[in-house]
């Protein structure tokens, strides 16, 4: 579907606007501050990234899983489904869509167990509590909430083209690619089309490497304001990271996070 972003469900249904996000998050933001909310999403993006790497998935699959995750909570409160369950479910679904093949259920669960135990024990003291049947049930809810829109366009492909156009620069590509990965920890994938995100990330990479590509950027026929907005989201993330110690704070944040409730006792 690479030829057809403009007709895609991604373009037509899943480029949200800022006001939408604020409205949908009202409930969660009555409990968490905006920064706390973002920190929780940074954490689960890392969980998805780590799971994906452990499962040897390509970055494209990991990115798609992350976007599914963000899309679900763009429409639902964090309390609706435990994000610790939704994260591996997104991986499971994305790997099927992105042609990786079906990850075996037992491998997925055991990977979750080891990853939580070895890499995220600073956040979770207990072991990973879910089993295959939970993932499968959750998958139906996820698919429903995504409105069956499963093909997600990512900035990686346009980024490759842009860097090629600048003139093959390994260092620039590597850095810009990492900035795109970082951008998954922000809301940009919900708000902007992937080629704009690619340009925004490339611009940041150029600034970091102190490459003056102003003339080249000026020639791109894009909405510069949008690119600046994207860059701002990412720079804000970098700012936040400077002072944020996830290992110290995350347990507190997770316990403060709104959680699923069982049926009311009668």
């Amino acid at each position: 579907m690479a030829g057809n972003f403009w007709q895609s469900s991604h373009h037509q249904q899943w480029l949200l606007d800022k006001q939408d996000l604020i409205r949908e998050r009202k409930h969660d933001l009555s409990i968490l501050s905006e920064e706390e909310y973002q920190k929780i999403f940074i954490f689960f993006s890392s969980v998805i990234q780590t799971l994906g790497e452990q499962l040897k998935l390509r970055q494209q699959v990991i990115a798609t899983a992350t976007v599914y995750f963000k899309r679900f909570y763009a429409r639902n409160s964090l309390k609706c489904i435990d994000p610790l369950l939704l994260a591996p479910t997104c991986i499971f679904l994305a790997s099927k869509v992105e042609e990786f093949g079906v990850i075996s259920n037992s491998r997925l669960i055991s990977t979750c167990q080891t990853v939580i135990k070895n890499k995220f024990n600073y956040a979770y003291l207990q072991e990973f509590p879910y089993r295959t049947n939970h993932i499968l049930e959750c998958e139906f809810y996820l698919l429903e909430n995504l409105d069956c829109c499963l093909i997600v366009y990512q900035p990686y492909r346009p980024l490759l083209q842009l860097v090629q156009d600048i003139g093959h620069e390994e260092q620039l590509l590597t850095l810009a690619w990492r900035v795109v990965n970082d951008s998954l920890r922000t809301d940009v994938s919900l708000l902007y089309p992937p080629y704009q995100i690619a340009i925004g990330c490339l611009q940041i990479a150029c600034v970091i490497l102190q490459k003056d590509q102003k003339a080249w950027f000026a020639e791109l026929n894009v909405d510069i304001e949008k690119i600046q907005e994207i860059a701002r989201y990412i720079i804000n993330l970098f700012e936040l990271w400077k002072t944020y110690d996830e290992k110290k704070e995350i347990q507190g944040l997770l316990s403060k996070m709104p959680k699923p409730k069982p049926a009311q006792q009668r």
Binding site: I81, L85, Q126, P129, Y130, P262
Partner: peptide, 15 residues
């Protein structure tokens, strides 16, 4: 196990 995977109200509403 303590974690509830899914909110009851949410489940009911979507159902």
């Amino acid at each position: 196990m303590t974690a509830f995977m899914m909110d009851y109200e949410f489940k009911l509403k979507t159902q």
